[in-house]
């Protein structure tokens, strides 16, 4: 038996928002692969929970009229990977979440839970950052829209008020159109392990495939929160593709990152990974986009 004080079971998003307003201290239970484990651990023992697990209206991925891809937050990792829209337009995201845990965890874990728990190692986070995801956050007072870039507030902290629920993750057409991405995860084990470092790159090339029109690079575990590296990104804009450019971009990533030493890896090793994974992911993304190095 889990040590749960109260568990509320809303039947709709509207009801869930009301319950979250009445019980702001209650934790939202989506897939449970973080919260239930922390209850077992004792860290969250005795918590009040609001189980939104069964709210089907918060699952699924769709294309909106203007070409925006809407990912509902309770979509499981495996459903993100298998989704035809993701496979066609943002395969790097499907690949990223396909490297989380093992199959059972990917079937229960949700993409919304992954970003709302705010950890820097969340495999979906660097790719969602790199595609400028936009979050829809709801409460009884209404809906607010927030760039994912502004959501992270610190390790394990996100900009979510006690009465709010994440209800949508959007990727605009301009973010994915004609854009090719690659996520690389470095971890000690290939399965059932969290990232020592994760790097997600996406690139848009000029029509003649010789110049980088736009580059976006997201990282996990390169700092206290998932992050982008604006210095390296802007350095690449409008530049001719070359081996040297890739080295320059990879070197420039080090200016913005701030990894730390943990039992998994030292700061120095992570700095090495920041640079090396950027090189590899950038090369792969350029190749996919039809460019040659």
């Amino acid at each position: 038996m889990y040590d749960i004080k109260n568990i509320y079971q809303p039947k709709s998003v509207g009801e869930a928002l009301k319950m979250k307003n009445e019980h702001p201290e209650a934790l939202l239970l989506a897939g449970g692969s973080d919260i239930l484990i922390q209850i077992r651990d004792g860290k969250l023992a005795g918590s009040d929970l609001i189980s939104i697990h069964s709210l089907e209206e918060l699952r699924g991925i769709s294309l909106e009229d203007d070409g925006t891809i809407l990912i509902k937050p309770l979509t499981s990792f495996s459903h993100v990977t298998q989704n035809p829209l993701i496979q066609k337009f943002i395969p790097a995201l499907g690949d990223a979440v396909d490297q989380i845990g093992g199959p059972q965890i990917r079937n229960i874990g949700t993409i919304g839970g992954n970003i709302c728990n705010g950890v820097t190692s969340a495999d979906s986070a660097s790719t969602l950052k790199a595609y400028d995801a936009i979050l829809e956050i709801s409460s009884v007072d209404g809906i607010r829209v927030l760039p994912y870039a502004d959501f992270s507030k610190g390790p394990g902290k996100v900009d979510l008020k006690p009465n709010e629920i994440l209800t949508g993750i959007r990727i605009l057409k301009d973010s994915y159109e004609n854009t090719y991405g690659k996520y690389i995860k470095y971890s000690i084990r290939r399965a059932m392990d969290i990232a020592t470092l994760g790097c997600s790159v996406n690139v848009r090339l000029s029509d003649d495939k010789k110049t980088i029109e736009r580059l976006r690079i997201g990282y996990g575990v390169a700092g206290p929160t998932p992050m982008r590296v604006p210095t390296a990104e802007s350095l690449a804009t409008g530049k001719l593709i070359s081996e040297q450019l890739i080295i320059d971009v990879a070197t420039a990533t080090l200016i913005d990152v701030n990894p730390r030493t943990s039992w998994r890896a030292t700061k120095e090793f992570r700095m090495q990974l920041v640079k090396e994974l950027c090189k590899r992911a950038l090369k792969a993304a350029i190749n996919q986009a039809g460019g040659t190095i």
């Binding site: 239970l29 449970g32 484990i37 651990d41 495996s78 229960i108």
Partner: peptide, 28 residues
């Protein structure tokens, strides 16, 4: 009991889950 070992794996609606970290009420 924490979703690491898979000994408790069951199939639910065609997908595999660790039943130790799945609430019984969700099986409705």
């Amino acid at each position: 009991d924490v979703g690491e070992c898979g000994a408790c794996t069951v199939m639910i609606d065609g997908e595999t889950f660790d039943s130790c970290i799945y609430l019984a009420i969700w099986a409705d």
